[in-house]
């Protein structure tokens, strides 16, 4: 870290610093095609099956998670895509449920952003 930055943090009495940009306007963005491709890949579902394995394990382990998270399984996330007004909003030229799913995911990311979770 640069000495001037460190001095500033010391003066502010902060020991770290997280940059927070203004909220992204996900709805105005083109989606990232890689996310769309990944969401189509059935192999990602393996993580949900593993979730079931964890659930089947006896006696929950003690837990301390550093980061917030939604606690939702991927399948429930998938099933939610495409619902809600933005999926058929005017100006969505793409059509097709897969695109709507990704739009819904981006909307969900936007929600997380506005909740300060991104």
């Amino acid at each position: 870290m640069r000495i001037d930055a460190r001095n500033l943090l010391d003066r502010l009495g902060k020991n770290d610093f997280a940059y927070k940009e203004f909220e992204d306007r996900f709805s105005e963005l083109e989606l990232w095609p890689i996310l769309e491709a990944l969401l189509r890949d059935p192999r990602l579902q393996a993580i949900d099956q593993a979730e079931a394995t964890v659930a089947a394990m006896p006696e929950p382990a003690p837990t301390e998670v550093v980061e917030t998270y939604s606690g939702e399984s991927l399948s429930s996330l998938f099933s939610r895509y495409g619902r809600g007004p933005a999926a058929d909003a005017p100006g969505d030229r793409r059509g097709g449920s897969q695109q709507q799913d990704v739009r819904a995911m981006l909307r969900h990311l936007s929600d997380l952003g506005s909740q300060g979770k991104i």
Binding site: A18, Y19, K20, E21, D24, W32, L35, L38, L44, I47, E51, V54, V65, V66, E67, Y69, S70, G71, E72, S73, L74, L77, M105, H108, L109, L112, G113, K117, I118
Partner: peptide
């Protein structure tokens, strides 16, 4: 890198994917 939009989106994607098993960043 929280200053980068793609980085934030990718991180959100990972969070959704791994759920409770994300220890942190």
């Amino acid at each position: 890198d929280e200053t980068r939009r793609l980085s934030r989106h990718s991180s959100a994607f990972i969070r959704e994917l791994v759920g409770a098993r994300l220890l942190g960043r």
